[in-house]
C-alpha cells in the first residue's frame, strides 16, 4: 500500500506527539499516582446509615494515614449529609462518599474533585486543598426532579487567618 511521502511525515509527527502525550498521562498516573477516583470498596446501599464511616458523616482529623483529614458524605435524593464542611488550607484530604439510592454526582465546582456515586459502591479521592475560599458542592448526575436542589458547601480556611480573627 502506497503512502505519500508527506503523509508519512505527517503521521510520524502525529504519532510521535501521541506517544509523548500518552507517556505524560501514564507517568503522572502510575508514577505520580494521579489516577481518577477508582475505589473498589463495596457497601450495602440500603444500610449506609449503620455502616462506618457513614454512620457518622462529617469532617474528622486522622492520624497515621497519608492524609490529614477525612470528609465523609452521604448522598441521597436530594441532599448531602452533612451539607457544610470546613477543612484547613493546605491539608491533605480524603473525600469518602456514597449514595443511599440512585446514582449521584459529587463535584466541587472550580476544582478537580469530581466523582460518581453509585449504589453499592464507595467513592474515594485524596487531594490537597490548596485554594482558600468557599466552594459549591453539587450533584452533576441527573437523579430526579430535585436534582439541582442537591448541593453543599466546602470551606477551605487559612488556619493563620482564622486564629487572627479569633
Amino acid at each position: 500500500m502506497h503512502i505519500h511521502k508527506y503523509e508519512k511525515w505527517w503521521l510520524t509527527f502525529g504519532i510521535t506527539c501521541l506517544v509523548v502525550f500518552l507517556s505524560i498521562v501514564g507517568f503522572s498516573a502510575f508514577h505520580a499516582g494521579a489516577h481518577p477516583p477508582s475505589a473498589q470498596v463495596y457497601i450495602n446501599q440500603e444500610h449506609v446509615d449503620e455502616i462506618a464511616p457513614f454512620d457518622n458523616p462529617g469532617v474528622r482529623k486522622v492520624e497515621g494515614e497519608e492524609w490529614d483529614y477525612e470528609v465523609v458524605v452521604v448522598a441521597a435524593a436530594f441532599m448531602y449529609t452533612p451539607n457544610e464542611f470546613e477543612v484547613p488550607l493546605g491539608s491533605k484530604v480524603k473525600f469518602i462518599a456514597t449514595t443511599k439510592d440512585v446514582v449521584h454526582g459529587f463535584q466541587i465546582a472550580g476544582t478537580n474533585i469530581n466523582m460518581m456515586l453509585e449504589p453499592g459502591y464507595v467513592s474515594e479521592f485524596v487531594t490537597t486543598v490548596d485554594k482558600p475560599g468557599e466552594f459549591l458542592i453539587l450533584c452533576n448526575e441527573y437523579c430526579g426532579v430535585g436534582h439541582t436542589a442537591m448541593s453543599a458547601k466546602l470551606k477551605v480556611v487559612d488556619p493563620d487567618e482564622k486564629r487572627e480573627q479569633q
Binding site: L22, A29, S38, Y42, M115, M116, E124
Partner: peptide
C-alpha cells in the same frame, strides 16, 4: 466512566490508550 468507583484505574488507563 473515568470518575466511577468499582473499575480499577489500570483498565481505565488501558482504554484511554
Amino acid at each position: 466512566q473515568l470518575t466511577e468507583p468499582g473499575i480499577d484505574a489500570f483498565w481505565k488507563f488501558l482504554q484511554v490508550v
